Amino acid sequence: MIATGVVASMAMGAGPASAAASSVELPEGMTASYLVVDQETGQSFGSDEHKQYRSASLVKLFIALDYLESHGPDYEIPADDLALLEPMLRSSNDDAASTLWVRDGWEEIVKRMVTELGLTDTAPPTARGKWGYTAISAADIVRTYQYIEHEANPKYRDFILSNLAQSTKCGSDGFDQSFGLPSAVPGPKAVKQGWSGFGAAPAPGEQCTETDAQVLRVLRSPEVKAATAVASSGDGPTGAQDIDLTSRAMHTSGIVGGDNGKIVVVLTLEPTTLSWQDSAARITELTRNVYYDCAL
């Protein structure tokens, strides 16, 4: 059975323009929302872009931006903090995210970003230690990229986007994070991936073994150990929340084409019966179709 995407309205902050008319088919069992914005023309294309999903690692965009804005543009980031921020952005390191989450105020990070960016669908997790259960939407993640690229201090923009442009093939947890945009679309990209519900590590034989020791470096300090004892991406039991915390989540997002390029956000939920490889193949194909069928 095939579900069909529906054209969406403009994302907040994208400016007035007409939306491209098209549709994208979804594989059976997949729930998906997506939004593409051409920053040159202001045109957009999407489906169900205000539907809420658990963020998984996309919340790391908020964590990084909040860190930079809280310290100011003249702040020289210490080497120890670079060892958290860089692996978090490039290799989606969870221990780094947990450390900054706890240090900088837990759910207050999300609340500050909602206010600062004017997000409409984003909300903190019900269980404050589970940062990956932050509620987001495709529209709000598009808005986040717009803010970073055009409204944030240029130092913050350059730091975040340059690190996303160095996204590694392997996540710090051993999962291959080259699904979606990195595999579906050619050319320069600054990307942030997210996944949840696949377990703490890949199944035997499925590990991603290409590593960059410098990028994947994370401090093994008392602060990191203490933070990871009380905060995590969120896989596991939690209190009630008005988003799906059961299905496997896999998200791809970023800016394609360099400065002022297209912003692409694809959020998906998959049945727990699907493997990592199957889910990765399905979101990659969907992302390819969304990007090329939108004709922006």
Rank of each mutant, 00 (worst) to 15 (best):
T31R: 15
R112T: 09
P202V: 08
Q39T: 15
A200I: 09
A97M: 10
F45T: 02
V191Q: 08
A19M: 12
I77F: 13
G261I: 06
D244H: 10
S44V: 02
W195I: 02
K155Q: 13
M113R: 07
F62W: 09
T168R: 04
L267I: 05
D244Q: 10
D259L: 09
V185R: 01
A97N: 04
I148E: 01
I2H: 07
V37M: 12
L286Q: 02
P186L: 09
P222H: 11
S70Y: 11
G72P: 10
V59W: 05
Y145W: 14
T209V: 15
L58D: 05
R220T: 12
D158W: 03
R288N: 11
E206T: 10
S253M: 10
L100Y: 07
W106V: 00
I63H: 08
G29Q: 05
A295H: 12
A17R: 04
F45A: 04
S92P: 06
S253Y: 09
G239H: 11
S275R: 04
P16G: 01
D95N: 15
M88C: 04
V36K: 07
N289K: 15
A227K: 06
D121M: 03
S91W: 02
H71E: 11
T4V: 15
Q39F: 06
G239P: 03
G239S: 14
S167V: 06
Q166F: 00
D242L: 12
I283A: 02
S9M: 09
A3E: 14
A231S: 14
D48T: 13
I141D: 01
G197Q: 06
D38K: 03
R248H: 14
L61S: 06
A32Q: 03
S91F: 06
P271W: 11
A83E: 14
D173Y: 10
S55V: 08
Q52N: 14
A32N: 03
F175S: 00
P188Q: 13
G171I: 07
E151R: 07
G174K: 08
G129P: 07
Y53P: 02
G132L: 04
L245C: 05
E69P: 01
V224K: 02
G239K: 14
A229I: 04
E107P: 12
Q277N: 12
N260S: 15
V224W: 07
T144D: 00
L100Q: 05
A56K: 06
S22Q: 13
V59S: 09
D38G: 03
T268W: 07
E270Q: 10
E223H: 09
D74K: 14
V37L: 14
T272Y: 01
T211C: 10
S221W: 10
L117Q: 00
Q52T: 12
L119A: 02
K51M: 14
Y291V: 00
S172P: 00
P202D: 03
T4M: 14
R103P: 06
A165C: 05
G187A: 10
S92T: 13
L216K: 11
T115S: 15
P87M: 12
Y291Q: 03
